[in-house]
């Protein structure tokens, strides 16, 4: 199963390694580690979000091992759709049936619309919407974006895609 966890630990050398070593001990694989250096933490702790894959039966054991290292687990949940990608659509979104546009992604089964934020100016003006899609893998994301490109083409919408950070 794929699991996402938010951990809180001391901002000290070796803490992250200590928190991560139990994962391989229970036969798990780390998919992603995201540090959130939040300056608001006066307590000298940091939050780290991790995504991992492990045999379901070992989850309880892993939780115990991580806690034994003095690391707090703030949140834990099963996560199927880990990849996120935002695009902006511009055009007559309501006239061209926005619900249908969203459904075309949701009905795939491998990707879904996680967030939709729309701004509507005057009725005759084109509206703009930011859509965040979630999927289980990069390949699924590419398939979902392809579908959306087709839909945008058919409905004469401008689709603005995100440029990956090459820096």
């Amino acid at each position: 199963m794929q699991v996402s966890m938010k951990l809180e630990m001391k901002d000290a050398p070796g803490q992250l390694v200590a928190a991560l070593t139990p994962i391989s001990e229970v036969g798990g694989n780390i998919i992603a580690v995201i540090h959130q250096h939040d300056p608001k933490h006066l307590s000298g702790t940091i939050d780290v979000q991790i995504m991992l894959e492990l045999p379901e039966k070992n989850l309880e054991k892993l939780i115990g091992l991580i806690r034994s290292k003095g690391v707090t687990i703030l949140r834990i949940g099963e996560e199927r759709l880990l990849i996120r990608h935002s695009i902006i659509l511009i055009g007559h979104l309501i006239h061209t049936d926005l619900t249908d546009t969203v459904d075309r992604i949701d009905e795939t089964g491998f990707a879904e619309v996680a967030e939709l934020h729309m701004v509507m100016p005057a009725i005759t003006e084109p509206s703009s919407a930011k859509i965040t899609i979630k999927s289980a893998s990069e390949a699924d994301m590419d398939r979902a974006l392809d579908i959306l490109r087709d839909v945008a083409g058919q409905k004469q919408l401008l689709m603005i895609e995100t440029m990956e950070d090459h820096a």
């Binding site: 511009i90 934020h117 100016p121 003006e125 084109p126 703009s128 930011k130 401008l158 603005i160 995100t162």
Partner: peptide, 22 residues
């Protein structure tokens, strides 16, 4: 090739919301 003539200021604001621009 796609140009910028259909880009709205709303779209730029939406991008801004996630620390991005267009």
């Amino acid at each position: 090739t796609t140009g910028i003539d259909a880009v709205t200021s709303d779209a730029l604001e939406l991008a801004e919301g996630q620390d991005c621009t267009i």
